[in-house]
Design a binder for these strands. Structure first.
Length: 468
DNA sequence: TTTTGAGTTGTTCGA
DNA sequence: GTCGAACAACTCAAA
């Protein structure tokens, strides 16, 4: 009987896991997670992501345990560890699901080559994207640079196949040494800032499926409008689960289509399409990162290499801490700090504020998000920041500079979101919730705006004009 | 090859 | 208070 090592990465689930499924069909599986925060070149896991990973691994180990299978945990260089594991387990094959970040592609290509040279069977699968980036090309044979035609093309392709069920595992008595998940030291201590994260999230496959069902039952019917109102919580918040592969986009695709079959009013279909387009943006981001391997650091629009970004450590710190004096910006930054998450609409507002009002490089914002977001994802994070900064693919026109007061009034009219995350403003009059400096009453402990909107807007426009 | 239509998420100004 | 136009001009995708 074939013995296969399953090298798990961002595919921490049992259902719809192609590498695991195929290996289990043919014999015994040995699931392995290798934590590598040294040899990986850059973009080492941020604090919030580490917290998530810890709990996701605990959950996955428990799920395997139900079938009498041990999830093997190791720490170090994947190439060396896989080599050792092959010897210890006398396995015939190694399967994995593909990663798409440039460094990961390089690493996996190298490992695959050397394993094959030693006669080991290696097979990789697609578990985290609906469409392989190299398969999506326009009629000229190039990658798409505009979202709408990209997504139209994707939707014109044959239907997604059905998600795979949980594998039927064959009994195994293989006993390999495994590290404790605790020994990876993924959890924060001194101080432990993770209380807010634990309140909000349930990492792991079960939590992901619960959340998808909750979203389809409760929120999707108002998605198109509701997704812009941060106080409503109408977005799916599936992003961290998707990032770690606790659920697959294919499972989401099918769940959404099933939902569409039983609720097919035009309005509901519109909401479902809007939601699937967000999954489409994730695909688009992965395409960009695939075709432009330096997308995480280099502006897609090369003109922006000459943009006069300002270095301002103090303003950067105030932005990070949620002390800019603009309530909607500060609420977002504090939601992020507290929960490891920020509502999509507010991400745009705070990113616009950093890059346009403060004219601080989008790299700084991307780095902060990378460390603090539980859904930190190289493709989506880079694409999002480039888009807001104006240098990305299909980006916002440069003169589109969000007015944080208007955005607040429009999308948080009662200030419910602001009051929740900025307690200093909890009792301020509705009229002044987004511009507390206009309030006749004295507001304690809340800063004045660190920059004047009209001045900052004008300054940003001049800077953009300079690189045209 | 040339042409044509279109492009996630806005703001400001002035009537 | 509401509404439409201006904001610039470019690149992409497909016919």
């Amino acid at each position: 009987m074939q013995k296969t090592i399953i090298w798990l990465r961002n595919d921490l689930r049992l259902k719809d896991n192609p590498a695991l499924y195929e290996a289990a069909e043919h014999g015994i599986v040995i699931p392995v997670y290798i934590f590598d925060n040294k040899t990986q070149n850059d973009w080492k896991l941020g604090g919030a992501s580490k917290w998530w990973l810890h709990h996701s691994l605990v959950s996955l180990a428990k799920d395997f345990k139900k079938f009498g299978i041990n999830l093997i945990i190791r720490s170090g260089n994947p190439k060396e560890i896989l080599g050792k594991l092959l010897i210890e387990s006398v396995a015939d094959a190694i399967f994995w699901n593909r990663c798409y970040e440039p460094d990961s592609i390089k690493r996996d290509t190298d490992i695959k080559k050397s394993l094959e040279e030693s006669g080991i069977k290696v097979k990789s699968f697609n578990a985290s994207l609906l469409f392989e980036p190299w398969e999506i090309k326009n009629q000229q044979g190039n990658n798409y640079k505009v979202f709408t035609p990209f997504w139209k093309h994707c939707l014109s392709l044959p239907q997604q196949s059905e998600p795979l069920s949980e594998p039927k595992f064959k009994p195994t008595d293989i006993a390999l040494k495994s590290d404790n998940i605790e020994s990876l030291q993924l959890l924060p201590k001194n101080p432990d800032w993770s209380g807010g994260l634990a309140e909000k999230w349930q990492p792991g496959e079960a939590g992901a499926i619960l959340l998808l069902n909750h979203f389809l039952d409760n929120s999707i019917n108002n998605y198109s409008n509701g997704r812009d109102i941060p106080a409503l919580g109408s977005t799916s918040t599936l992003s961290p689960h998707l990032h770690f592969g606790e659920i697959s986009p294919r499972q989401i695709w099918h769940a959404v289509n099933f939902h569409a079959e039983i609720n097919s009013s035009p309005k509901e279909r519109h909401n479902l399409q809007k939601f699937m387009a967000e999954i489409g943006w994730r695909e688009f981001s992965y395409n960009l990162l695939y075709y432009y391997p330096d997308f995480a650091t280099q502006p897609f629009n090369k003109k922006f290499a000459y943009f006069p970004w300002l270095e301002d450590a103090e303003n950067l710190r105030l932005w990070q801490q949620g002390k800019t004096g603009y309530p909607i910006v500060d609420a977002g930054m504090r939601q992020l700090w507290h929960t490891g998450y920020m509502h999509n609409r507010v991400r745009m507002i705070v990113a616009s504020f950093l890059t346009k009002h403060l004219m601080i490089h989008w790299h700084e914002g991307a780095k902060w998000f990378w460390d603090t977001l539980v859904d930190a994802d190289l493709a989506s994070n880079s694409a999002g920041w480039q888009w807001v900064a104006g240098c990305g693919a299909d980006a916002a026109p440069y003169f589109r500079i969000f007015n944080p007061v208007l955005q607040g009034k429009k999308f948080d009219p009662d200030g419910e979101y602001v009051r929740k995350w900025v307690p200093e403003l909890a009792n301020i009059d509705r009229k002044y919730i987004h511009s507390p400096w206009e309030s006749p009453k004295i507001i304690r402990n809340y800063p004045s705006p660190i920059v004047d909107h009209a001045y900052a807007r004008d300054r940003a426009m001049q800077a953009y004009n300079a690189i045209k």
